[in-house]
Design a protein around this nucleic acid. Structure first.
Ligand SMILES: [Mn+2]
Ligand SMILES: [Mn+2]
Ligand SMILES: [Mn+2]
Ligand SMILES: [Mn+2]
Lengths: 222, 222
DNA sequence: GATAATTTTTAGATAAGTCTAAACTTATGG
DNA sequence: CCATAAGTTTAGACTTATCTAAAAATTATC
């Protein structure tokens, strides 16, 4: 099978992507975080960190966690671009639901051809956001991060439009689907229950109560 | 990354597909043939044959070559279905040329999801032939083999329509493209040169001389 | 039918990625 | 400020897929 010069393995790309996401989510990427996210053991992660460090894709000092180098980040963003474009394709062209696409896109996102992904991008009209509201980097790796707030951060009478999720699990996405809390939904906070911090929302002419857990992972633009 | 129960590795699938193609092309699949086709060494092939044999995907007896079992053939045809559907997609939807798609489809053809490929098939309207004229198996693995003849097998005054190629190399496909010998072209044999067995064709209002080598790999329906 | 040429298999290594168990650092809280 | 917990790394092993070199089997040739 084809492997191009300067190509990185499926596995290496996966680690880089994971490090990127960990850093974004929690400000840093530690061995255990990466192990949890990649479903491997800490010892395996350490091995890979050494390898990526030698390839100058991450900055690594024993026991100190890691950050991506410019080159490592470029690769990570490339993988994320592929992943999100494929998710968009699966939902918009092949009629998958938003909770069904992540696993398949995980595989598709490692197909090496850049030509392929650029043509796919063009075919779909250069979409800006994936089915979960996450921004799709352009072919130069540029994208705007949306300024989104979790519903748990809103006050009573605040209004927002659902534009993203903080949890991409099938379970959460299916819950939202069922509750009609899909992307683009406009909502207003009616009440915040003291006892359990659950939130009562007004959506069109209906009221809906969501738990704090849900509120934290439901992201809106004001 | 996801690996399903009863899934086979990328590599195993590749060997099965290669064995299928060898058997079709030359009636049998030998260690050296497989090694040449997969760009590996005979010793590596032997190792894999033992493994596939243990999994009951091939019938293997030392020194005697191999054949696919029913299960092995089913997997091979599944991979071929994916490969050809992706080639169709690349040409019809993403505007790749027929000589550019094989390598990319080689990667895409190993994405595990059956759901994906069935939806892709539907999205494209259940195409019957890939960009090289090869039949695309349906979701039950069924397909009709076309009865095609190489132009080298025609006699003077015979007429045919180009519907397939015997050589899928970039070089050959580009040659055909340049010579306007694309799929669907109608041709008549005007003359067969004794000296080198080259063939003079009448195509619309033009004459074209092709070598015996080309004539052998240009497949037509009468 | 013996010998030479070809093909295939075995033996022994290597590289990538993973694991468990044990050792080592760093962080914490009494 | 040190003892223990938590987090990380090392050591050693395993699996998959590959290789080269050498041995064995098959096939072709005289
Ligand atoms: Mn995803
Ligand atoms: Mn997504
Ligand atoms: Mn092909
Ligand atoms: Mn083809």
């Amino acid at each position: 099978m084809v492997r191009f010069v300067l190509m990185h393995t499926f596995t290496e790309e996966n680690y880089l992507k994971t490090i990127y996401h960990c850093t974004l989510a929690s400000g840093s990427a530690t061995t255990n975080q990466i192990a949890a996210a990649t479903n491997t053991r800490a010892a395996s992660v350490t091995d890979m960190l050494k390898k990526l460090s030698e390839k100058k894709l991450i900055n690594y000092a024993k026991y100190q966690g890691v950050t991506l180098t410019a080159e490592g980040e470029k690769i990570a963003i490339g993988v994320i671009r592929k992943h999100r474009l494929w998710e968009y394709f699966l939902v918009e062209k092949l009629d998958f639901k938003w909770d069904e696409v992540h696993e398949v896109a995980e595989e598709l996102g490692h197909i090496s051809s850049i030509e392929l992904i650029d043509r796919l991008d063009k075919f779909m009209g250069y979409p800006k956001y994936d089915p979960h509201g996450d921004p799709i980097p352009d072919s130069n790796g540029r994208f705007k991060r949306q300024e989104l707030k979790p519903v748990s951060g809103l006050a009573v009478n605040d209004t927002g439009v659902v534009l993203g999720v903080g949890d991409h699990s099938t379970a959460f996405l299916q819950y939202l689907e069922k509750a009609s809390l899909t992307l683009g939904t406009k909502l207003t906070v009616i009440e915040i229950i003291d006892y359990d911090h659950s939130v009562v929302l007004q959506i069109a002419d209906k009221k809906l109560n969501i738990s704090r857990e849900v509120a934290k992972n439901l992201l809106v633009a004001l």
